[in-house]
Amino acid sequence: MTNSLFSLLMLVLFVGETLTCFTLMRLPSLLRFYALSSVALGGLAIGLALEGGGVHLIPVAVAVVAVKALLVPFVIKRMAERSGASLRLVSSLRPSASWFVGIGVFGSGISLALHSPLYQMNNMIQTPALLPISFGVILVGLVMMIIRKDLLSQMIGFLVLENGIAAFSLSALGGIPVAIEFGVYSAVLIGAILMATLSQRVQNLLGTHDTSHLSELTD
């Protein structure tokens, strides 16, 4: 297990906030919790750096917080406000059911990880607990994209998935080379901007951001 209390706290926060993201139905709160979970991810990186993971994790943590906790939520919120999109999001599930599904998916992700050979050779992993959790978060992100009906939450589902992958890179590799890390973050940022622009244009064109209206290309 992680040896510092700080890391443990961050881990718990990360999981809790991600799962909350899965269930929230209003855009501002959803974005807030997404930002918080990203902050927790940054915290995990700092924790790892403090435990001897290397100094290069510090700029990574800063980048995570800057991109995922500040820039991306800001862009999404800005776009949503400018297009006058409804802040109420649409899902196939009720919030209470979402909790069950979310925990179930998260749990199956963890069990998947525990059965994988990745976890079985955990003697070289610095943070063994983070690895199964990252699996869980990835699955939660994927399922969130599937069960959410509107463009904005699908986007956040994708970002949650991305967070899971980042968590995996932290746990399994102790972070990847900084140059690549920045490349990945800028790709995420540009992707988010593009997605937000698109969703804004869809909103302007259709007056809704429900994806069930975007299902005409069936040939």
């Binding site: 994708f158 998935l161 997605m195 698109l198 869809v202 064109l205 994806t211």
Partner: peptide, 17 residues
């Protein structure tokens, strides 16, 4: 157009995922 927006959304979401 509406259909090209739809295609673009699917393109970026599915490919990015």
């Amino acid at each position: 157009k509406k259909s090209s927006m739809e295609a673009a959304w699917k393109y970026i979401m599915l490919c990015s995922t």
